[in-house]
């Protein structure tokens, strides 16, 4: 029985990853197109990046998006880590399955439903929509992703370390600070970055929960995409891809470096 890569497996990998990455690569490639027609190559140029930085509305939207993403990421991390602890460490408690269900449901719930229901809630409560309502929406989604990531780390966690520290007389706060926290910190950071990028990318929930003056970057991109292809969208997409790519690289490196022995 041969284990390992045959040429057959290699070609599947090449085709599969080609399918995933070629479209993205083409967006990046054509952002350096001198032609105004996106799909007609007219020579190399960086002019669309220059015009991007003169586009006030787009810059404004990017700044809203970044601030929303930082706030939503931070909030998600705190809430999600708490949820992960409750799920992983608290054993059985009343309504545990309901709680777990609430944590996992937003991961698959169609975004139009989440967006619409949040908007109706805010209107019903008389809350003006804007920056913080988007943050609340994104944090709800991000919480779930953080909870999944942190819970995975907690479940592969060697609890004898905590017990040993406790036996040696460390207070629970001390145990948490010097054992538990350092061990789950990489997962929390990874969770933060995931919630951050999720918020940065979200279009549907933001459309429902944003108010005047809090248009996010995806909302701007969407309205431009509806009008047709423009090289400017390629340029802003390339910047976003680069940005998210760096964030992911940091997240995965941190997650791997700090936990060499996290194998299950």
């Amino acid at each position: 029985m041969k284990r390992g890569l045959t040429p057959f497996h290699l070609s599947i990998l090449a085709l599969g990853f080609g399918f995933l990455y070629v479209p993205i690569a083409l967006v990046v490639f054509y952002s350096f197109n001198a032609s105004r027609l996106v799909t007609v190559w007219g020579g190399f140029s960086t002019q669309w990046y220059v015009s991007l930085f003169a586009n006030e509305a787009l810059l404004q939207a990017a700044s809203v998006s970044l601030r929303v993403a930082v706030a939503a990421g931070a909030l998600s991390t705190v809430l999600g880590t708490c949820a992960a602890f409750a799920l992983q460490r608290f054993g059985r408690f009343p309504a545990r399955s309901l709680f777990a269900g609430l944590v996992y449901a937003p991961l698959v719930m169609p975004e139009v439903i989440i967006g619409l229901s949040l908007l109706l809630l805010f209107v019903g409560l008389g809350i003006d929509r804007g920056f913080w309502t988007i943050v609340a929406g994104h944090a709800t989604l991000g919480l779930c992703f953080v909870a999944v990531v942190v819970q995975a780390r907690l479940s592969g966690f060697d609890r004898s370390l905590e017990e040993a520290a406790q036996d040696l007389g460390a207070s629970p706060a001390r145990v948490f600070r010097s054992i538990t926290l350092p061990l789950i910190l990489p997962a929390m950071l990874a969770g933060f970055l995931l919630a951050f990028t999720l918020s940065l990318d979200d279009f549907v929930i933001a459309s429902f929960t944003s108010g005047p003056g809090s248009t996010t970057l995806p909302m701007r991109i969407y309205s431009q995409v509806r009008l047709g292809l423009t090289p400017e969208i390629n340029a802003v997409s390339t910047l976003l891809i680069g940005f998210v790519g760096c964030a992911l690289l940091v997240a995965s490196t941190v997650n791997r470096l700090k936990a060499p022995s996290q194998a299950r």
Binding site: F17, L20, I24, T39, D201, F203
Partner: peptide, 28 residues
């Protein structure tokens, strides 16, 4: 695995935009 899930974190809109570029009548 990282490579397989990374596209999920790249903007949804951008990935759909890429397919508009590919599939249009005057597309790639």
């Amino acid at each position: 695995v990282m490579l397989a899930i990374a596209p999920f974190w790249t903007s949804f809109l951008i990935r759909i935009y890429a397919w508009i570029m590919l599939l249009k009548d005057e597309g790639l």
